[in-house]
Structure formats: structure tokens, C-alpha cells
Write a protein that binds this DNA or RNA. Structure first.
Length: 476
RNA sequence: CGGGGCGUAGCGCAGUCCGGUUAGCGCACCUGCCUUGGGAGCAGGGGGUCGGAGGUUCAAAUCCUCUCGCCCCGACCA
């Protein structure tokens, strides 16, 4: 606890790891690339799950669970899918002490098992749509891992839907992307750019992939969620057909979409500071901590009595931490809870008891506010909702300040090297120019934004005609 | 897989080059006192197969060989 968090401008990677470990969000597990999500971190995931799950249910989706192990033959049915995932799959070859007849893949994602089942469940258009989501773990054998951002095993939700037409699947894909965007901004307080992935960045096996892209405090991009229109690829691979109203047999149209525990990494890198975690109030299971302060038994009695009343009132509405530990001084407690990202601290000392007031300190700006005892609930509500709004606004400002419009390739490169951030440039649409940028600068096309105005221009690399700008950035 | 770094108490490290008391320090932990408006202080205390195996030696944390693991940077990726 006494150890300090490495400041961001000294070493951003170290800072990130320090925050994760010291805020007790996660810890390294015995297996390389694996992590333990500790209670503080898991509470964030539960908050993400609870809110997103509600949004899914509200839009007609239901939850189910499919198995962890996938027969090898399934993995090979969809050509692009195999190619995309084979290298990073773990395979079970022995069971019950005997070599298995067919090796079993540990799911890197569940399209194949799920579509093998959809084949059994779908006969006619009356069986459609199927709007299933599952909360699960998946495994991908990663070369380089980082806590939350990329671990071999991670938790996510994966939605897998089946539709009667391309249009309906497309509508679903976009609908989900909007849910992700709303969630990211309203709950995580992370502004995101919604758009489409380029051919080379899209999901293996998809017709096209949509995504939301966020900017972290080191100005690197981070993909926060994806939604795929899978077309009929999986339906064809698994021979899933339905009879339409006219009696014709057609292959089913599919989507899949997901967000993962990576969102926790995004959350940390978007808002936290050199004192530790900064958690948006809406995601804090314990948004308030009360720290009583006293000197001597007489004061202790009065302060605790007063603080206890405050606690009782507040706990009707919030999950409150009442930190009356005697072995620590207030200064220590302040730092401790700041490190763990508790959004709002209430300090109550003898002076406050005398004046019937208390002190509110917001985690994001650390400003002290003296409020009247009577205003408690109103002011706490206000502080928490203001903080939620301010975090989003601050992040949006940061992103906009670090987004550059460039038309000249030399300037494009120089900007990436000197200041980083998002670069909006014209792109002709060719994989060659995209690859050239990646080779030259390590930046990739994060997305082709939906709400970017159509304007005539010239590809920043080759000069060919282009109709809109895309987002380039170095990314996680 | 390539490059770099590192395994000594729960954590962070010193000691290793140049072998030699009982392996040490800071933090954390336990007991007591004292403290409490920004990470207190004093006193006492517990805790170690020095990553593992083999070798050299009168003697190995230290030298040699092999081995296991982790972290960081790259190629790959949500």
C-alpha cells in the first residue's frame, strides 16, 4: 500500500500495471498470460454485465450457454474462420487418460458450436429471428499479454443471432453497435467513434465488421467493442437453411457481437490518474466512503455518532464504505480509497460535527466541498452525477484535442511520431495503402466512421480519389 | 520465436564480480504504548528448501553445467 504508483509521464505501461495491481483489480496467475480478476475488478465486470445485460434484454435478446469444447472438424468448416483462429487455439487431445479420436478445441469464440445447434433449431422463417447472447470465457493463445487488455483467457459476452434476410441481420448489427456506443458513453464515460472496419481489420469469417473505437490517455486507440454481419458464411458452412413464406429454401443470415473484460482496461486507461483508479460512479458498486476523523475519546464518540447517522441515511440508497478502522490515520485512508477509485469521499471531523456539516471530495477533481448536513442526499446525488458527466466530457475534450486532420503524408507521419493521437485522412480504400501506412508508422485504420461527412479528397498515401476521411492511429 | 531484464521472507530489493560468522535491509504482518483534518512514532516479535537439479570445493546465495518460470520490447491479435 505504501508503494507509489509510477506517474504516467514517467512510464505509461508501468503506471497501468501499477494501478491494476495496487487497486487490487487483478493479479498475475500461475499460468503465463492468465490473470486472476480480484473482487475489486470483478465488481466492475459485474456492473458492466448488469447494465449491458439489461440493454440486451430490453432489445429482445435472451441468454443461453454453449459448451467450452468444440470438435476440431467444426473449426475447419468455415475457411476464413479457421485461418483466422487456428494459430491461437489451444486443443485438448487427451481425455480420461486416453488419446481422443477427435481433438477438441477450447473455444476462441463460439460461432461454430452455436451454428451447429442452429441447424437443429431452424426450419422455417417462423423460427427466426434467434437472438441469443452468452456470457462466457474464451481462450486465445496470445504471444504478448497485458492485464485486462489482452490475456489468454478472458471473459466476454458474445451475441449470435440468426435472421431471415440480409437487411434484418444488418439492422441487428447496427442496433448492437449503438447499444455498445450508448453503454460506453453513458456508463463507462468513454467517448467512442462508431464505424466500419477495413477489409484487413475485419473479423475472420465476417462480411463486414463494425466497431467502436476509443482513445486512451497515451493517445493510442483501443477497440472497445465489435459487431459483425456474418452474412451467410456460417449458415453455408453448417448447412443451416430455412423455408421462407414462399416456400423457398434459403440460407440463414447471421450476426455476432461482443465486448470483453478488455473494457475494464479501457476504463482504467481513459480516466485514472497518478493517484490510482478513477471509477465512473455508475460502475462503482461502492460509490461512497465515509472517513471519520477524531482526536481523543471524547471527539471519537461525537464524531462516530454523527458519522453513524450519516451512514444510516446514505446506505438506504448507496452501498457505502464506513471506514472506522483505528489503526490507520485519515491521510492513509484518503490515499487508500483514492487508489481504489471510490468516486466520492465524505470526511467527518469534530469541526464538521460542531457545524452540522460534512466534507465531500470527488475522486476525479479532488476538490473539497463543504455541505450542510441536511443537504446530504441531494449533494451526494449531485456530486456523483456531475462526476459521471464531467468524466465523459473531459475524455471527449482530450480525444478531440488529440485528433488531427492531415492531407500530406509527410505531415501525417510527423504528427504520428511527435504527438500521436487520431489522424483523420482520406484513404482510397486499397489494402496496399493501408499496409504501407502500417509498415511506415505502425498505425492502422481504426475505423471508417459513420458520422464523418462525405467530402471529396485524395488518399493521403497514393493520391487517388476518396470520398471520406478515416481514422488512423496506433492502437492496443 | 528474436532481443533485453530478473528469480534471495508476503512485496520491493542488497549481498553474487573476488566462495568463508547465525543471509541482511525497507515496506507489509503480529503484540503493546502513543496517535488520528493528507500515506505517523517508539519498543518488542514472527516469517527463508537463496527458482529447481546436478557438479567443483574443507566450505556455495556466490563458481560451472543443465533446467524451469516470470516481466519488458518486437513479429500476431479483441
Amino acid at each position: 500500500m505504501a508503494e507509489k504508483v509510477t506517474p504516467r509521464d514517467v512510464d505509461y505501461s508501468k503506471w497501468y500495471t501499477d494501478v491494476v495491481l495496487q487497486a487490487k483489480l487483478a493479479d498475475y496467475a500461475p499460468v503465463k498470460g492468465a490473470m486472476v480478476i480480484r473482487p475489486n475488478g470483478y465488481a466492475i465486470w459485474e456492473a458492466i454485465q448488469a447494465n449491458l445485460d439489461k440493454m440486451f434484454k430490453d432489445s429482445g435478446h435472451v441468454n443461453a450457454y454453449f459448451p467450452l469444447l468444440i470438435p476440431e472438424s467444426f473449426m475447419h468448416k468455415e475457411a476464413e474462420h479457421v485461418e483466422g483462429f487456428s494459430p491461437e487455439c489451444a486443443v485438448v487431445t487427451i481425455g480420461g487418460g486416453q488419446e481422443l479420436e477427435e481433438p477438441l478445441y477450447i473455444r476462441p469464440t463460439s460461432e461454430t458450436v452455436i451454428w451447429s445447434m442452429y441447424k437443429k433449431w431452424i426450419m422455417s422463417y417462423r423460427d427466426l429471428p434467434i437472438l441469443i447472447n452468452q456470457w462466457a470465457n474464451v481462450l486465445r493463445w496470445e504471444m504478448r499479454t497485458r492485464l485486462f487488455l489482452r490475456t489468454s483467457e478472458f471473459l466476454w459476452q458474445e451475441g449470435h443471432t440468426a435472421h431471415a434476410s440480409y437487411e434484418e441481420a444488418e439492422e441487428e448489427t447496427v442496433k448492437i453497435l449503438n447499444i455498445y456506443k450508448t453503454f460506453a458513453e453513458d456508463f463507462l464515460a468513454i467517448p467512442v467513434i462508431a464505424g466500419k472496419k477495413s477489409e484487413s481489420e475485419k473479423f475472420a469469417g465476417a462480411m463486414h465488421t463494425y466497431c467502436i473505437e476509443a482513445m486512451m490517455q497515451d493517445k493510442k486507440g483501443l477497440q472497445a467493442g465489435t459487431s459483425h454481419n456474418l452474412g451467410q458464411n456460417f449458415a453455408k458452412a453448417f448447412e443451416v437453411q430455412f423455408q421462407d413464406k414462399q416456400g423457398e429454401l434459403n440460407h440463414v443470415w447471421a450476426t455476432s457481437w461482443g465486448v470483453s473484460t478488455r473494457l475494464i482496461g479501457a476504463l482504467i486507461m481513459a480516466h485514472s490518474d497518478d493517484r490510482g483508479l478513477v471509477l465512473p460512479p455508475k460502475l462503482a458498486q461502492r460509490p461512497v466512503v465515509i472517513v471519520p476523523i477524531w482526536r481523543g475519546d471524547d471527539e471519537k464518540k461525537k464524531v462516530l455518532e454523527f458519522a453513524d447517522q450519516v451512514h444510516s441515511e446514505l446506505k438506504q440508497k448507496y452501498n457505502v464504505i464506513f471506514d472506522d478502522r483505528e489503526q490507520y490515520k485519515p491521510g492513509f485512508k484518503f490515499s487508500d480509497w483514492e487508489l481504489q477509485g471510490i468516486p466520492l469521499r465524505i470526511e467527518i471531523g469534530p469541526k464538521d460535527v460542531a457545524k452540522e456539516q460534512l466534507v465531500l471530495v470527488r475522486r476525479d477533481n479532488l476538490q473539497k466541498q463543504f455541505i450542510n448536513r441536511q443537504e446530504l442526499l441531494v449533494k451526494v446525488d449531485e456530486a456523483l452525477s456531475d462526476m459521471q458527466i464531467d468524466l465523459l466530457e473531459k475524455a471527449r475534450q482530450f480525444r478531440d484535442d488529440n485528433t488531427h486532420v492531415k492531407d500530406d503524408y509527410k505531415e501525417f507521419q510527423a504528427t504520428l511520431d511527435q504527438s500521436g493521437g487520431f489522424i483523420k485522412s482520406h484513404w482510397c480504400g486499397s489494402a496496399e495503402c493501408e499496409a504501407r501506412v502500417k509498415d511506415d508508422t505502425k498505425a492502422t485504420i481504426r475505423c471508417i466512421p459513420f458520422d464523418e461527412p462525405q467530402e471529396k479528397g485524395h488518399c493521403v498515401v497514393c493520391g487517388k480519389e476518396s470520398s471520406q476521411r478515416v481514422i488512423f492511429a496506433r492502437a492496443y
